[in-house]
Design a protein around this nucleic acid. Structure first.
Length: 285
DNA sequence: ACGATACCCTGATGGC
DNA sequence: TGCCATCAGGGTATCG
């Protein structure tokens, strides 16, 4: 659900709220959204849901640690603990991290902090994951090593490498986290429109100039979205509960059939890489 | 190796 | 109103 700008907005908000706080206890309410060393692969655990009793490995979930930093790569978050452990958080489609506030349904993990507040992982669809690791190095090895370069700072050269030899559509490449980390369905369409590139173009067919332009516009679109606090379409909320503001600035996402903001022609809605895709057939020829 | 598919799960929406 | 089908911002496993 949340793409890079939403995850980065959450990271920044949490950074000022919880860095420096000590975790005094953790409550795992839904074991199937938690991954710990020795667990079977995610799919297996997922299918069996809560068949296993809750296992307590509090230190790996930061109990006894002070939170020292929050890091992000693509859409992935990491919460670092002073005693060594690091917790990876993947928000999936509907996941979020909240501090304080009202209790909510679909709360799966609750960390109690030394100032009395609680950090919660809430995720209606349960596509998200909270993963405890003994160290940040281990988290990076297990969960981040397969990610491509971060989209917020992607260079033209890096995007060229991601597209080289790829016969798939450029949009499919942008959505592939192993090629470019952080772009999801909204910002893929927005960046491709800004760059005037047809989302169905074969990635390998883009010229050097087109790649350079696209890389620059991916960075620009993501930066603007972060500045606006991300896009709130359905569920996304800041850790304090507020909504983002970038959804009012979408040029194509969610606007199929409506006029293109540049040429006035009707925007096309198609299905590409199993995702709803909106583009201007005239501007993105 | 790559690309396309199925699947994980709940909730909102639109058509009948 | 109620029911059903369809659709969602994502990631992974598996198959060809």
């Amino acid at each position: 659900m949340p793409e890079l700008p939403e995850v980065e907005s959450i990271r920044r908000a949490l950074e000022s709220e919880i860095v420096g706080r000590e975790v005094t206890r953790v409550e795992v309410r839904t074991r199937s959204v938690v991954s710990l060393p020795g667990d079977p692969p995610a799919g297996f655990t997922r299918a069996r849901s809560n068949a296993k009793p809750v296992r307590t490995t509090p230190a790996l979930l930061l109990v006894g640690s002070m939170i020292t930093a929050l890091e992000r790569r693509g859409k992935q978050l990491a919460i670092l603990g002073s005693a060594g452990p690091a917790v990876g958080v993947q928000l999936g489609m509907t996941g979020t991290l909240l501090v304080g506030g009202e209790d909510r349904p679909h709360t799966h993990v609750v960390w109690r902090l030394d100032d009395g507040r609680r950090l919660r992982f809430v995720d209606a669809r349960r596509f998200g994951l909270v993963a405890g690791h003994p160290s940040m190095e281990e988290l990076v090895r297990v969960r981040w090593s397969s990610l491509g370069p971060d989209a917020l700072t992607i260079s033209a050269a890096a995007l060229r490498r991601a597209c080289a030899g790829r016969e798939r559509a450029i949009k499919a490449v942008l959505l592939d986290q192993g090629a470019v980390a952080g772009v999801g369905n909204i910002y893929a369409d927005e960046a491709l429109f800004a760059a005037r590139v047809d989302p169905g173009r074969q990635a390998s067919s883009l010229t050097g100039d087109e790649i350079a332009d696209l890389a620059k516009l991916i960075r620009a679109v993501l930066r603007m979205a972060i500045r606006a606090g991300g896009s709130t379409i359905r569920d996304y909320r800041h850790p304090g509960g507020g909504a983002g503001g970038y959804q009012t600035r979408h040029t194509v996402y969610g606007r199929a059939g409506r006029p293109c903001v540049v040429c006035g022609g009707p925007l096309a809605g198609v299905r590409l890489a199993q995702r709803a895709t909106v583009y201007c057939p005239n501007c993105q020829a």
